[in-house]
Simulated assay, not measured.
Amino acid sequence: MKRNILSTLLIVTPLILASPVMAGNPAQVQKLLETGQCKACDLSNEDLRYAHLIGADLRDANLQGANLTEANLEGADLTGANLKGADLTGAMVTNASLNDANLDNVNFTQAMIYDADVTGASMENLNITNAQIYNTGIGIGGEEP
């Protein structure tokens, strides 16, 4: 009997204590993940860790404060997107368009940023610690690497 109670507690306790991820706009998150299309969506503060967003259309999307840790944004169009304060730690940002995007306070720690277009982007206070940046206009002191 004690063994059954202990087994039940071991199974149920993590379910009770687990804090579910609450999406601010689950329909838009689902649309993005299923179709790769979410132009002008509000994805602020969303948890998009490890998301495969290859070629995604995120033009003018609000991704302020979003968690994009280790997301794959290869070929994504983020033209005019607001990524202020977003976490892109370890993200793959290859051949992406970040034209006129707000990249202020973005965490690009250990990100791989290759051939990304950042023309007209706001880039105040970026964290590029251990980032790999090639053929992209992001650098220390305003100098292209």
Rank of each mutant, 00 (worst) to 15 (best):
A56G: 01
G36H: 00
K31A: 15
A51E: 02
I16Y: 03
K31Y: 07
N62Y: 05
L17K: 03
I54Q: 10
S44C: 14
R49G: 13
Q37V: 01
D47N: 15
P14G: 08
A66C: 06
K31C: 12
C38M: 05
R49F: 12
A18R: 09
L68P: 05
E46L: 13
D42Q: 03
G55E: 00
V12M: 09
N67S: 14
N62E: 06
A51C: 07
E70S: 15
A23P: 05
G65Y: 11
L33H: 12
A66Y: 09
K31Q: 15
S19L: 11
V12D: 04
A23D: 13
L53E: 00
D42Y: 02
K39Q: 14
A23L: 07
N62D: 15
A23W: 10
G65M: 08
V12N: 06
G36M: 00
V12S: 08
Q30I: 08
C41A: 10
V21E: 10
S44D: 13
A23K: 08
G24W: 13
T35G: 09
N62I: 11
L68R: 13
I54T: 13
R49Y: 09
A71F: 04
A71L: 12
T69G: 09
C38E: 06
P14R: 11
L43M: 05
P14S: 07
